[in-house]
């Protein structure tokens, strides 16, 4: 991440896949496990986080010259809290049912360390354009991770996706998956899968280097 070249495309992909906030950096776990017992809740939570992250990255990056270094963390937190309050009230007005489902976890977006981390590590040091692209990438990565987790848990736990039954009435739902332990287990297994993918890629790269070196 040390390169300073402006490459919006790379910054976007970074958040979505290579440095995915959940699967690779393991950040922002608190809100993510609690609300991913169905795909629709996961999407709502992901959407709310998406808005908060992009908006606060934009504001922090635009104000970065005026924020004194000593109080920067508190400033970020207040900016984030403002946007979370906006999201909370908007969601309550537009989609009261979803808001009720998510309950206390909307205000808890403030405590999502992923958001604060992006302000400190990226938005406060880069141009507005790059900061927004980075936020878009990270937020999409977060949304993607939440949706994957929510979908897996809903499919296994209720045999349905978005409330539409998938396997017919004979399917015996794995109730444990929509209960808290299911969240821990699913995320654990997904992390395992991702570290397997990374390891495999590294092994392949090493093999490739060996092959190229050999004939000479």
């Amino acid at each position: 991440m040390s390169r300073r070249k402006e490459d919006p495309h790379a910054e976007f992909i970074k958040g979505l896949w290579r440095d995915n906030p959940v699967f690779v950096q393991v950040l922002g776990m608190c809100p993510m496990l609690a609300v991913t017992n169905s795909a629709i809740n996961a999407l709502a939570m992901g959407g709310a986080t998406f808005f908060v992250l992009v908006a606060s990255s934009f504001l922090v990056s635009s104000l970065r010259q005026w924020i004194p270094r000593q109080v920067r963390i508190s400033t970020y937190i207040i900016i984030i809290a403002t946007f979370v309050t906006v999201t909370d009230f908007t969601l309550e007005a537009l989609a009261p049912v979803v808001h009720k489902e998510l309950g206390a976890f909307i205000p808890l977006i403030v405590a999502n360390c992923m958001i604060l981390g992006r302000q400190e590590a990226f938005a406060s040091r880069n141009s507005v354009r790059l900061a927004v692209v980075d936020a878009l990438g990270m937020a999409s990565g977060f949304l993607f991770a939440l949706f994957t987790l929510g979908a897996v848990r809903e499919i296994l736990g209720e045999g349905a996706l978005f409330g539409v039954s998938l396997f017919g009435p004979d399917f015996e739902p794995w109730v444990i998956m929509i209960l808290p332990p299911g969240g821990f287990l699913t995320l654990g297994l997904l992390l395992l899968f991702f570290s397997w993918l990374r390891e495999r890629k590294q092994r392949l790269a090493i093999r490739l280097e060996e092959l190229e070196a050999e004939p000479k």
């Binding site: 444990i176 808290p180 332990p181 299911g182 969240g183 287990l185 654990g188 297994l189």
Partner: peptide
């Protein structure tokens, strides 16, 4: 492969159960 967070999450899952 299992070392680190993946293992801890699975332990947490069992504790939660």
């Amino acid at each position: 492969l299992l070392r680190g967070t993946a293992m801890n999450l699975i332990i947490a899952g069992i504790l939660s159960m």
